[in-house]
Design a protein around this nucleic acid. Structure first.
Lengths: 332, 332
DNA sequence: TCCTATAATGAAATCGATTCCAAAATTGTT
DNA sequence: AACAATTTTGGAATCGATTTCATTATAGGA
């Protein structure tokens, strides 16, 4: 079914049908004939042809490091939900943490003529930064604060700072920090800084805090925790950059017979569903992943609409930081 | 940058440039001039225009019930990976379990002129079945065996049967089954049948097995398990339709002071990462989610390629069942 | 050298929509 | 009734690619 065939059947020109669909002067009589024909034929305009002619496409590219991950899929759910509500569809690209995967997808998305891109940030390399700057369509970053780019991200620093403060208040004053790669500014650097600043704020020596770097897995948390317990048997608490790491670490603590929370306090970040199935339940900082996705999508769409309507006035880069909520459970 | 501009710069016709890109007779001299011009300008053909002209689009619609879920995101990762490898992109639609959401997305995908659709199945309603049959592009279902449609799914029945057999062999001979809605044939009906048939196979009475229906959450598993323990204090084992439910159920068991695995055995399905962080670690049936996604994508692409090349010969519907692997851990 | 195959070439048609424009129809004003 | 202003209308151009087709250049064979 094409617009021409509909026009033919309704006995009008294709221009008339187009005007019917998009608004334009049309006699009531033809309007009715066209309405009926479209109803009977079940005609839907071809979006590809529409895009071709107008240059407007309602597809948004979403580039994520690995869709199979609790936090990533939550953010993606938020994005997809918001986009759908506003009549857009999601073009998903999952890099599987492949080196330079974002670059490839940035190209793919642009070849597909997407109206905008949401990039879930992990490590910002100069080469990626360049590619992002050269991106011909609006772009919003989630989960990281990339200076100079529109971002929606979490208050990682204060979330972990408060979490650590809670541990210290509970008397777990010789803590270790199980972090992730520093290449990841939000989850790596910010969370570590938050933990160490809380230690400093309590009048303790941050240099005495054992700091280790884990993968984003429970297995890695388990192994690193075991090492720390061997090297620093005196510690009585651990702040972990993610829940997964914390849950792995708890296994190591059980093996060593450390009593949680009496002799040892532990906390994670992300408020994963698994927190409440652990023994004891894991204290964590809730981050608003879904909202992050929704806000990022909303921000992107407003950038796109701005670009389409207004003259290209210079606009300020928008950065949005979302709060957090400490969920206290039995592990501290 | 359009093909015309490239042609202009290279001093050839746009037809020549098109032939350069798609193969066709071209003198070595022009070939070189075009190559250089494309390199200098960084020209990429406009995929929308290409699609417009050829009718071939390299986008696949993927409709899932809820992207924020362990199993769903694993399958999606497999799909996206396979599609990317073969030069396709993923148009993601997450229905958030909204009533009739699949129908809406089926329309959206077709309006976007996708080359094919992968539908992650949950509940098959007659109305959905009709919509799927009316789908104008090839379609593959994952996770469910919908008769008459191309499917890639798991051996849910035998996975749970073997799991249950294991529990019984370990002496947990008075088991309960914590299932999910029967509207979901794979996770609801097949898994329940597997459990009950194993009971029957062991010479026990399947009618004596308490069966309950949970949501797909740990909280729900916790509540239902608590009820079962109150009503049937004699039971000494539980087979759960998902790991999440099982992990929730374990919390109820702890509260009641049931010793796992000495006095009580429990098992789940899905081999979630959280299985190995539980105390004791949860025995589960590993389902090949990622492979399911990859195989579904491969199957869809072969259908598409078949359709594009061959005459429309009548082809048999392909149904692929994937195996499972029992991962025995401390909970049985 | 001449003639026939074959390769190379670009003008033009095409995909399905939107939109400009000039012409036709309708309305309102004297 | 005559004219101006406004609305309605469909033909044709357009978006950026591919592909057909007729034509020209080249190669190979006698």
């Amino acid at each position: 079914m094409t617009i021409k065939e509909v026009a033919e059947l309704a006995g009008v020109s294709s221009a008339a049908v187009s005007r019917y669909l998009n608004g334009g002067s049309l006699s009531e009589e033809k309007r009715e004939r066209i309405r009926k024909t479209i109803e009977e034929t079940g005609y839907h305009p071809n979006l590809v042809a529409q895009t071709m002619r107008t240059g407007h496409i309602r597809q948004i590219g979403v580039i994520v490091p690995k869709i199979h991950s609790d936090s990533v899929s939550q953010v993606t759910a938020g994005i997809a939900r918001q986009l759908r509500q506003r009549g857009y569809v999601t073009l998903l690209g999952s890099t599987d943490h492949e080196e330079g995967g974002e670059l490839g997808y940035l190209d793919i998305m642009q070849n597909n003529q997407v109206a905008g891109v949401i990039l879930m940030g992990t490590c910002l390399t100069p080469i990626l930064s360049d590619a992002m700057r050269e991106c011909r369509v609006p772009l919003v970053v989630t989960g990281q604060n990339y200076p100079g780019f529109a971002c929606v991200y979490h208050d990682d620093y204060n979330a972990v700072r408060e979490l650590t403060r809670l541990l210290l208040e509970r008397g777990h004053d010789r803590i270790a920090f199980l972090g992730v790669t520093e290449k990841d500014v939000a989850a790596g650097q910010q969370r570590r800084l938050g933990a160490l600043d809380a230690v400093r704020g309590a009048g303790l020596d941050p240099n005495a805090v054992p700091v280790t770097v884990c993968e984003f897995t429970a297995e890695s948390g388990y192994l690193r925790m075991k090492e720390i317990l061997k090297r620093h048997p005196e510690i009585n608490g651990a702040v972990c950059a993610t829940d997964t790491i914390a849950l792995g670490a708890m296994k190591a603590l059980r093996e060593q017979g450390r009593k949680i929370p009496e002799e040892f306090g532990i906390a994670g970040v992300g408020d994963s569903w698994a927190c409440s199935t652990a023994v004891p339940e894991l204290t964590s900082a809730h981050l608003y992943y879904r909202e992050c996705g929704e806000d990022a999508a909303a921000m992107l769409l407003s950038l796109i609409e701005q670009q389409e309507t207004e003259a290209p006035t210079e606009m300020p880069v928008r950065q949005m930081m979302l709060g957090y909520k400490i969920i206290e459970r039995g592990s501290v």
